[in-house]
Design a protein around this nucleic acid. Sequence first.
DNA 1: CCAAGTAGGTAACGCGCGTTACTAGCGCAT
DNA 2: ATGCGCTAGTAACGCGCGTTACCTACTTGG
Lengths: 356, 356
Amino acid sequence: MAKTTTSNHAAAARQRGVTMNDVAKHAGVSRTAVSFVLSNRENASISEETRARINEAVQVLGYRPNAGARALASQRSDWYGIVTEIVTAPFAVDIIKGAQDQAWLDRRFLLIAPSDQADAVGPNQGMEDAAIEKLLEQRVEGLLYAATYHRGVHVPESANEVPTVLINCFDADGRLPSIVPDERAGGRVAVERLLQAGHRRIGVINLDPDIPAAVGRLAGAREALADAGLELDPELVVPGHATADGGYEAACEILDRYTEKDRPTALFCLNDRMAMGAYDAIKERGLTIPGDIAVIGFDNQELIAAYLRPKLTTVALPFEKMGALGVQTLAALTAGQPIIADQQLVGCPLLERSSV
Amino acid sequence: MAKTTTSNHAAAARQRGVTMNDVAKHAGVSRTAVSFVLSNRENASISEETRARINEAVQVLGYRPNAGARALASQRSDWYGIVTEIVTAPFAVDIIKGAQDQAWLDRRFLLIAPSDQADAVGPNQGMEDAAIEKLLEQRVEGLLYAATYHRGVHVPESANEVPTVLINCFDADGRLPSIVPDERAGGRVAVERLLQAGHRRIGVINLDPDIPAAVGRLAGAREALADAGLELDPELVVPGHATADGGYEAACEILDRYTEKDRPTALFCLNDRMAMGAYDAIKERGLTIPGDIAVIGFDNQELIAAYLRPKLTTVALPFEKMGALGVQTLAALTAGQPIIADQQLVGCPLLERSSV
DNA sequence: CCAAGTAGGTAACGCGCGTTACTAGCGCAT
DNA sequence: ATGCGCTAGTAACGCGCGTTACCTACTTGG
């Protein structure tokens, strides 16, 4: 009964917003005392008894601090902002999640701004500027700028007003710290896995050869082969369009080009979408995975890799980890610590499934 | 040159935060005048000349309003909050995007709170409460509560303190307005499409028969058949686990059970993941899609539907639209307008691709 | 020449809170 | 009695802004 009354009281009071003043009155103390207790001030001398009275009043009235007012008075918001090109892109989301989780652990709030409105008119740049502007209006203490695929970017100038960290991309103008996947190590681990399974003739379905992902992954593949005393046969590297259809066509070409003896026994597809297409090409020819041809992908696009049959062994891009690291780096920067490194590389773990 | 100076000036000033006072001084007017100009007040009488001077000062100094202070003074935040179980779930993200875009159009900001931290300890409920609490501390004016799959939910009590709208779920206690997909109409359109293509014997790979998705889609399928003077053969409805493997097994069962003559010529898979498995079963038996067997899915899980070969014809769940509608409904509620309806149904459009 | 507008502003309060400076009371040594 | 140091607080300012009430010219009609 008493409990019901209390909770009703709380609900009613909240309607109009219970303030510290209300709490102070209820506890019979000054608002300052309440503030001291709530912010757990070290050198404040408040007796245990009044402290208890205040805490009780907070409970009874259902007091909830006003984050905006607190930010205004204390001149710090505890907010970070993240702006990313395509909020619904499968990868952007994982970055956001990693950052969000980490921010939550640090008792901070992550404001997420879209930079690609559905009905945006004109160049994307304008949208991005507006998003950053909006975040700065909220007085975020730091900014995260994330790309959906690893590449160089030009960050709007307004980002320079607060500490900024780039995720999954790097500053083409070379001033801002960034966090990117270690593509090279990822390519290496993929091919090492194939070598370990006994494959010596490995086909590679390549991406656009100019992007960092292709450059890094291919370099890693070469390293792994070199370690085993092998070389990458240029003929076995076929270009592919970064889709399932592209992978299908590339796989067809490589499979039909050789006799059964010369045919590669494994395919390293530089992304999972292409691997998905390669599966079709392989199955179409009556070959089995991994019996006749082993396949390894890259990206770990869950919806594909985990549902293909057999499930696809692939190398994961560490999006969540990059997001978390981004927040940590930002925390360090806003705390005035020096930058750890211009560019932090994050490892790409191999995910063993059933296609090798 | 002059421009450089200006922008430097602006950058330097922003460091310490340019306030309205600074603008007022620069323009030689009172802060009130600045406020009037910036908020475009109707009945304020400011001459065109001083208005121009103020606007110029804003430009020169690089003034940016402080959203927190504004919220504090005006007693309205222009913020909505959204809390959803699994931020990275493929569907949740689309809801967020729809809501985000709409909020942006309405010049509002959407705060996104996760209710499923990676390292959450104990029951999920605690996390959700904390997330809502955090949003209320930011003084959001309304709350969106989204689920990743259509179902009944219990919303934490604290959500009652501000207008709340449910998306892709409904209040099991029946008090809050909700927005859900029209599963029945979706099921109907799927089967109508198959009928239109000449199929008369249609297999259905079902979901857990108790969830709203299964109930609605199946009911819609029955309606479509009834309109064509047909009945749904109970034997042709096989239960499936909601994964690719589940779809594979269900499809195997239905394909192997009949002779070529009695075999259904089309499969309605109640989700795309199962359709993905069904593809494998069909191809494995040397049958072609859609030549021998047409397949239609549900959900439009892009990464699957758009990359399967042939691309999967499916019925889309209108996540973005639901998100947008959620924000619109919230806007109406916070404006004091009466609720349009307890439950708003949103249509599920058919996406024609190549599997029918 | 005077009262009554009207255009063009400004002073001052309060939003909810953090923070600094100050005070009142008390025990204790001088 | 006086001074000192300590505990347990409180008064008051300011954060940046919206808003109301008010004030001062300058017309305009009578």
